[in-house]
Amino acid sequence: MSLTGKHILSSDLFDRDELERLFELAEVLVPVARGEQVTRALEGAVMASLFFEPSTRTRLSCESAFLRLGGAVTSTTGSEVSSLAKGESLADTSQVISGYCDLAVMRHPEVSSIHEFAAVTNIPVVNAGNGAGEHPTQALLDMFTLHREFGRLGKSMDGRRIALIGDLRHGRAPHSLMKLLALYEDLTIVCIAPESLGMPQELLELAVSHGHRIEESHRPSIALKEADAVYATRLQTERFADKPLPYSDEFRVDRALVSQVCRADAVIMHPLPRDSRPGANDLGADLNGDPRLAVFRQSDAGIPTRMALFASVLGVADEVRKSLRPAGWYRPEYTRPDDAPFYKS
């Protein structure tokens, strides 16, 4: 299956072969993402960056990825500073934008928005998050991270025990991730959430239909044991309005919990942002420096993964490989103070 010209609205689009092709290209592009090599495979192409909901990582990662490929970016952020504030429809916006650009990346708080936008444009559209729906590019970089982390540990993706913990009902990142996990074999997927925030039933049924084992739990201190990977997510407070938040400190994935129940070689992930304030029921900042914490390696994976996706959607994957050359500018050593020793090598 070729991705050239395709809309990337859902993780449904991918099969395992396509994932492996994307990840092979992403590995080639890691030095470009780090500023060590250069490609101009998309020179002259223009991406529309349309973020009608707050974003830091996804917006900057998508824009950086397109720029690293040699393309240009034009952007708008927030409905209040676009013509949507004047009553323009998404359909009209879409058709206008398609006359300006070669590809559009959009985030919007309404689930149906990305489908409305894509239905009336002739350029590829990439979903950067549609309300509580999906976030397929996040799922791609999450899977790329899992492949790299398990590869470092001498493990394959198949046969693993993967724990997802947090607000699994409203979290679009775990929704898209579940669809990609279903493409692998013999997984045990542990969904840990308060009763009212569990994974949607249709996604559980999808995993079961692919032969995977599903376990549901409300007790992190029990369910996280023996997990090969722990994928934590924050409480999606923006989806609750004024309702009370059904969350307790049991769901705080911090040093105390990890030290008590997690494997010594567990991979700990989070799509970010996390609430790092003291007492927050999220992934604890006291895990910084723990070699199992992969969140910044995961975040770094966003640029090469999205570069691989954009190159594939615009049909220049082969050109990328041919056009690589060394960068001519200064780059610092690619490490951070809290990076694990193996990451610095």
Rank of each mutant, 00 (worst) to 15 (best):
E250Y: 07
E43F: 12
G284Y: 09
R252V: 07
T74K: 14
H212Q: 03
A294C: 02
S98I: 04
T56D: 02
D275P: 09
T56E: 01
P136T: 04
A308N: 10
G302V: 00
P246C: 06
G35W: 12
E205K: 14
A65L: 10
V267Q: 05
I123H: 12
A91F: 09
S98H: 10
A266S: 13
F150Y: 03
T233D: 10
F296N: 06
Q260L: 15
I97V: 15
A256T: 13
T77M: 14
V230K: 02
G289Q: 07
T76Y: 14
P341I: 03
L203F: 11
K344C: 10
R239C: 04
P246D: 09
S98P: 07
D228R: 04
Q236R: 11
P31R: 05
K243P: 00
L42R: 09
D338N: 12
D167R: 04
R219E: 15
W329Y: 14
S221F: 12
I114H: 12
S75V: 05
V313S: 12
P304W: 01
L146K: 00
T93E: 13
A229L: 05
M106C: 10
D300T: 00
L42E: 09
E18R: 15
A280N: 08
L197Y: 03
R252T: 13
E20Q: 14
L22M: 02
F296D: 03
L25E: 01
P200I: 01
W329Q: 12
T4E: 15
T93D: 13
P31N: 05
D290C: 02
D275I: 04
V73Y: 14
N288F: 11
E110T: 05
N130C: 11
I222H: 13
V46E: 11
S299E: 13
D338W: 12
L180E: 01
G78Y: 07
K344W: 01
L180P: 06
A45E: 13
S89Y: 03
N130H: 09
S82H: 10
L42A: 08
G284E: 06
D158T: 04
V253T: 02
P124F: 08
S259C: 09
I189T: 14
S64W: 06
L235A: 08
P124E: 08
D102M: 07
E88R: 01
G159I: 01
T233E: 10
H218L: 13
C262R: 01
S49H: 03
V126Q: 07
C101P: 02
S82T: 15
L19G: 00
S176H: 08
A128G: 05
R40T: 14
I268M: 03
A232I: 01
E149C: 00
T237M: 12
D286I: 06
R274P: 05
V126H: 08
R40H: 15
Y343N: 02
T188H: 15
H115A: 12
V38L: 12
S2C: 03
L103K: 09
E134K: 09
T76L: 15
R169C: 04
G87K: 08
A85F: 07
R234N: 02
L224A: 11
S276T: 10
S94H: 09
P54K: 07
P124Q: 06
S55L: 10
V208L: 13
V267T: 11
A285P: 00
I8D: 05
F51T: 03
L224Q: 10
L206R: 13
D92S: 06
A41G: 10
S10D: 11
L206I: 05
